[in-house]
C-alpha cells in the first residue's frame, strides 16, 4: 500500500457487548500501523465513558475533546493529541462529561472527511451498545471490525452487531477474536475459532490469545505491541499487517500446553538454537 497517495481508510471497531477488548484493539492496532509509518488517527466515540486516552497512556496530554471540536470551541488540529513515542499516531479524545446523543452521525461524517486528506487510517473506537453512540461511530466508516470473545454472550451481541452493520450497507466486515485460551479449547471448555466463524459467518482478521502482558501494559499506559515476548503483541501486529494487505498466516496455537512447550524446548536445544 502506498503511504503517500493511497486514500484514507476509516475503520470502526465495534462489538455490541462491552469489555471484550475494543479499546485495547484500537490502541494496539493503530500503534502498530503508526509504527510501520502510516499516518494514523484514532477517534474515541465513547463519549461519557472515555478509555482510549488511558489505554494509550495519553491521558495527561488531552486538552480539548471531540465535542468541543464539533461545537467550534477549538479546531480539529488543536484537539488532536500527537503521541510522542509514535509521531504518526494522533488521538481525538472523547468528552467525559457529555452525552452520546449530543453529537450526530452527520457531524462525525463531517469530522472524518476533514481528517481523510491528512491520514492513511482513521480508527474509530465505538462504544458498547446499539444506540446513538453506535450509530455515530459507524456513520463515517468504510469498513468494520467486530471484536468478540469466545463466550456465548459476546457471540450473541456480535451477531446482532453484524446484522446491523449489514443493514447499514457495510460490505467489509471482519472478525477479531480476543482473549482465546487454546488450552481450554483443546479440552472442550471454550468455543474455538472455527465455532465462532460457523456462528457468525464473516471473515477472520485476527485471533488474540489471552495474555497477562496486556494487563501489565495497560497498567503502565504502554502499547503491548512493543513487547516482543507477548503473544497478544504478535497477534495485534499481525492484524495491522493484514489491514495493509499483507498475507499473514494464522498461528495454530498448538504449542502451548506444558508438554508441547517442553517438546518445543527440547527441539530448540538439540537443533542448537
Amino acid at each position: 500500500m502506498d503511504k503517500k497517495n493511497s486514500e484514507c481508510h476509516v475503520i470502526v471497531v465495534t462489538s455490541g457487548k462491552g469489555g471484550v477488548g475494543k479499546t485495547t484493539t484500537v490502541a494496539n492496532v493503530s500503534t502498530s500501523l503508526a509504527k510501520m509509518g502510516y499516518r494514523v488517527a484514532v477517534m474515541d466515540l465513547d463519549i461519557g465513558l472515555k478509555k482510549l486516552d488511558l489505554i494509550l497512556g495519553l491521558e495527561n496530554r488531552v486538552i480539548y475533546d471531540i465535542v468541543q471540536v464539533i461545537e467550534g470551541e477549538c479546531t480539529l488540529k488543536q484537539a488532536l493529541v500527537r503521541d510522542k513515542r509514535f509521531p504518526e499516531l494522533h488521538m481525538l479524545p472523547a468528552a467525559q462529561t457529555r452525552n452520546k446523543d449530543e453529537i450526530t452521525p452527520e457531524q462525525v461524517k463531517d469530522l472524518c472527511s476533514q481528517m481523510r486528506p491528512d491520514f492513511d487510517f482513521v480508527l474509530i473506537d465505538c462504544p458498547a451498545g446499539i444506540e446513538q453512540g453506535f450509530r455515530n461511530a459507524i456513520a463515517a466508516a468504510d469498513q468494520a471490525l467486530v471484536v468478540t470473545n469466545p463466550e456465548v454472550s459476546a457471540v450473541r451481541d456480535a451477531d446482532r452487531i453484524i446484522g446491523m452493520l449489514e443493514s447499514a450497507g457495510f460490505q467489509d466486515i471482519k472478525l477479531i477474536v480476543n482473549r482465546i485460551r487454546p488450552d481450554m479449547v483443546r479440552h472442550g471448555d471454550m468455543l474455538s475459532i472455527e465455532d465462532l466463524i460457523e456462528h457468525l459467518c464473516i471473515d477472520l482478521l485476527g485471533v488474540v490469545p489471552e495474555d497477562r502482558n496486556v494487563v501489565v501494559s495497560t497498567n503502565r499506559g504502554e502499547p503491548i505491541i512493543l513487547n516482543d515476548r507477548s503473544s497478544a503483541a504478535l497477534a495485534f501486529n499481525n492484524i495491522a499487517r493484514r489491514i495493509i494487505g499483507e498475507e499473514v498466516e494464522f498461528p495454530t496455537f498448538q504449542d502451548d500446553s506444558f508438554w508441547d512447550r517442553l517438546r518445543g524446548l527440547g527441539r530448540n536445544l538439540f537443533s542448537g538454537r
Binding site: 456465548v152 479449547v185 472442550g188 468455543l191 465455532d195 460457523e198 456462528h199
Partner: peptide, 10 residues
C-alpha cells in the same frame, strides 16, 4: 463438553 453445549445453545 461445555464447548458443545455453548455451540448448541448459540
Amino acid at each position: 463438553s461445555s464447548r458443545n453445549q455453548a455451540n448448541n445453545r448459540l
